[in-house]
Design a protein around this nucleic acid. Structure first.
Lengths: 210, 210
DNA sequence: ACCATATTATGAACATCGTTCATTTCATAT
DNA sequence: ATATGAAATGAACGATGTTCATAATATGGT
């Protein structure tokens, strides 16, 4: 394969992912169809499979883009809050996460609505991207509790993320009981501050685990 | 329709839901197929649609059973912990939730993996069942903060549920980073106790909302 | 008991997916 | 210019949920 063809095929793949991203952003993951994608990109269905292995790869690669933008947003947020207390930094990150989710609803949902078929494992590069996000939580946590061993702090970071994620999911899901953004921010601040306070209190003594 | 036929059809419907429940429990929601179900129950595919409107109804009704068992577990747990502090009662309920999720993994996952097609709304009876569960959280919360207006306390109950739910989801999902049950209980206790402590501290003054 | 009518069961057919494959078209290198 | 290998095509395949003409069955009136 010559250099020119490689470039052309990369451009095609990019166009494919652009179209897929637009579709998911507009109408959600379930609206992403192979035939639509092919016609949008201007090729036959079969040609898709020379650009990607299957639809899962499309979703994963769009997810990668979303994770990249989320990472950038969290990085910016962490930088803005860098001067504050660890608790304030954690709250800032959590709120940035909530805002990102609200502003990128369908793409964000696609990140975790997507389930691989039984037996198929997440590619390493995808799993690694997800794990990398935790560093934004890990850093303020280090400041808050420098005494904790890495493993325990990582577990805490996961827990903190999960708690906030859960609040955001439920807050953004029911149109009926939709929580306005200010209310969502308030709930997040309450939870994150309470945990940060609890962690600071636990310093030196027990670790809060049972 | 005579009484005998009503009974017979109810029995068929029950057999259908039994089979569906078994299938989901064994192999997850994605393994539930109309044709499998029909052959398991011993009828033609078309006959399914005289017992239920569509597959969504099957999933919803199995979900209803799961919610019923979850409710019973939470009720029992709340009764056992009734003598403790509000914080301890909240922790007990959260742990019961985590245990139920772990012990009924596929059925529990089916509760929220299932998404209605665009536009279709949850039946009222299903939404109401879900909301009823919050009362288990609401009660200890009332003891903890009798000063809070109902609406605010309900929002808090939702937040608390979401946070714990998030932790349980992530804790039970990755086989890679699987958190052992004791670790999961530890994380839950930490978070719930921290929030309870924060709420108790907030009594009388501000409400922790921004 | 018998038949007219309404209800229910049947399973082939349909629509919609993702995916594959024989075939054609195209690009590259000699 | 032609031979060879890569890429594109779109019909076909296998699942899937759902529907429908038809057959079987149950119900109720006489």
């Amino acid at each position: 394969m010559t250099r020119a063809t490689t470039l052309r095929r990369d451009a095609q793949r990019t166009a494919l992912l652009d179209a897929a991203e637009r579709r998911i952003a507009d109408a959600g993951l379930t609206a992403l169809k192979a035939r639509d994608l092919a016609s949008e990109v201007g090729c036959a269905v079969g040609a898709l499979y020379t650009l990607v292995a299957d639809m899962d790869e499309v979703v994963l690669r769009v997810g990668s883009r979303t994770l990249g933008r989320l990472d950038a947003a969290l990085t910016a947020s962490a930088a803005s809050a860098a001067a504050g207390t660890p608790a304030a930094r954690l709250v800032a990150i959590a709120r940035t996460y909530a805002d990102f989710a609200a502003d990128n609803l369908h793409l964000w949902r696609a990140l975790f609505e997507f389930r691989l078929a039984d037996g198929r494992a997440l590619p390493d590069w995808s799993a690694e991207e997800q794990i990398r996000l935790f560093r934004h939580i890990d850093a303020p946590l280090s400041a808050l509790r420098p005494d904790l061993p890495d493993a325990e702090r990582h577990l805490l970071a996961r827990t903190l993320f999960s708690a906030v994620h859960g609040i955001v999911v439920l807050g953004l899901e029911g149109k009926l009981i939709a929580v306005p953004r200010a209310g969502l921010h308030g709930q997040i601040a309450m939870v994150v501050e309470a945990i940060a306070h609890g962690l600071a209190a636990g310093q030196g003594s027990g670790n809060g685990n049972r």
